[in-house]
């Protein structure tokens, strides 16, 4: 089935925002799928990294509702493999930042069970706070 989509000025604005925050020219993505193929977290995602890139190109802001942007663990596997030299992790970061900068947190650190807080290494807490809280 062929779907027709009209790119509006809102779409363009969103795409430009992603480019500005990530520093990545998302329009360069060829949709080869290498990022999705190597992603260790792809099984936990609702859309694949390459789909995320496509939505960024099209400026579809619904991508902000995806689980994928939060499941990304910033392991940079896609980063080293992208034949176009794009950094998908930075694109995901840009999307997370758009949400976090509206003071919307992904996790409530006060809701983490006390017994987990007692054993989690500092590095896990610090990085989770950085990635998931504003």
């Amino acid at each position: 089935m062929v779907k027709k989509m009209i790119i509006s000025s809102e779409n363009e604005e969103f795409m430009r925002k992603i480019i500005e925050l990530s520093g990545e020219i998302v329009t360069m993505c060829d949709q080869c799928g290498t990022c999705s193929g190597g992603c260790p977290m792809v099984g936990e995602m609702d859309i694949t990294p390459s789909q995320l890139m496509r939505l960024a190109q099209l400026g579809v802001s619904d991508v902000l509702d995806s689980r994928t942007i939060w499941v990304c663990a910033s392991c940079f596997t896609c980063t080293v493999r992208c034949p176009r030299g794009l950094d998908v992790s930075k694109v995901a970061e840009a999307m997370r930042q758009i949400i976090l900068r509206q003071a919307i947190d992904r996790i409530d650190i006060r809701a983490i069970p006390k017994e987990e807080l007692e054993k989690l290494p500092q590095i896990a807490m610090v990085s989770a706070c950085r990635k998931f809280t504003s």
Binding site: R110, I112, K114, L117, Q122, M125, V126, C129
Partner: peptide
């Protein structure tokens, strides 16, 4: 242990 401080004040880990 440091875990006590994290347990009661987990936001300490938010220090930048």
């Amino acid at each position: 242990s440091a875990s006590v401080l994290i347990k009661y004040y987990p936001e300490v880990a938010r220090c930048v």
